[in-house]
């Protein structure tokens, strides 16, 4: 099998879908000749031309509004929003328009569109380039939220997202772009809404997704002997809650780790579902480990204590297993 990067996997998924379906096009700032500021779209403009690799002004509402309208007319846009933080400037087209148009039209319309964006913290870019805003979109009925943690998933999940008939927020992470992995060629996809059990275990369930998963793996390596069941959610909406509940019923303990701040986050939502569905199986209180609930400060020394930290994950795992802080 050949090994490719996360970035290459994204590029391949898009090119394969563009090849397969003439209605698929990419649009966003710097996505034409430049190939996207992250380089995810290199070669697409040269191969498919400007209409299918459309550079835009810095007009996020225009980009996402256009994508939504184009989806109404039967196209399958894949829009790029450079940083997830910038989605705040186009919340109306995402939340009030794209997410709702199919229902409001009495199901006359489908809105097949993907908003590729990238999120995360740890690159000394301060408050407005460091957020993980998945919870806002999970909170809006009508959107799917996908967060691949590795190149294989990035390709398979992106292909499924492009083929999906509803709006998908596809969250990439710049710290994962250069990761390399075996990624098979050919026609395949990973269904949305199916979590992956990274490895099975008996003592504790750990749920994570995206870049945070790496920190969880680092944390687990700190333990000499531990039997942890590690679940990579892959998609937050739809959420594969069954896999989580099955695991909790077995282990009796759960920790959810994500880059986003803990307050009202994806972890809090999972805790709600676990309490509702598996309360009697719990041997300890469900815990969440996330970023500190502050705007991210610039200085590296301060940023480091604000992000999801491996040591904090280790501490919470230890507490869940032993009851000792």
């Amino acid at each position: 099998m050949r090994r490719i990067s996360y970035l290459k996997a994204i590029n391949e998924a898009i090119q394969e879908e563009m090849e397969r379906d003439n209605n698929v096009f990419v649009i966003g700032e710097d996505v034409g000749e430049y190939g996207g500021v992250w380089g995810a779209l290199r070669g697409i403009y040269e191969k498919y031309g400007a209409m299918r690799a459309q550079d835009t002004p810095i007009s996020e509402s225009g980009i996402i509004g256009l994508a939504t309208g184009a989806a109404m007319a039967g196209l399958r846009p894949v829009a790029e929003i450079m940083y997830m933080d910038f989605l705040t400037t186009c919340m109306d087209p995402v939340v009030n328009q794209a997410a709702k148009a199919d229902l409001m039209s009495g199901w006359q319309l489908k809105i097949p569109m993907v908003i590729r964006t990238q999120y995360g913290i740890g690159t000394r870019e301060a408050s407005q380039h460091s957020q993980s805003l998945e919870a806002w979109f999970m909170h809006t009925p009508g959107l799917k939220v996908v967060v691949p943690s590795n190149p294989y998933d990035a390709k398979g999940l992106l292909k499924a997202s492009i083929r999906d008939d509803t709006p998908v927020i596809f969250m990439e992470n710049r710290l994962l772009y250069n990761d390399i992995q075996d990624v098979p060629e050919g026609t395949w996809e990973i269904p949305l809404g199916k979590a992956k059990i990274v490895h099975e275990g008996e003592q504790i369930t750990i749920v994570s997704y995206g870049h945070a998963l790496k920190k969880v793996i680092n944390a687990l390596n700190e333990f000499n002997e531990i039997s942890a069941e590690l679940i990579d959610l892959r998609t937050l909406v739809p959420m594969d809650i069954d896999t989580i509940i099955e695991s909790v019923k077995k282990t009796g303990r759960i920790l959810i780790a994500h880059d986003a701040v803990e307050k009202c986050g994806a972890g809090a939502e999972i805790v709600r579902l676990v309490i509702e569905k598996a309360f009697d199986y719990l041997d300890a209180e469900p815990l969440v480990c996330g970023g500190l609930g502050v705007p991210t400060p610039f200085s590296g020394k301060l940023e480091d204590i604000c992000m999801l930290r491996t040591e904090a994950i280790v501490g919470k795992i230890q507490y869940l297993l032993t009851g000792i802080i």
Partner: peptide, 14 residues
């Protein structure tokens, strides 16, 4: 609705 209208117009051109 204004940015949405870009989309159908874009689709016509496309």
């Amino acid at each position: 609705g204004i940015p949405l209208s870009l989309g159908t117009a874009y689709a016509s051109k496309y």
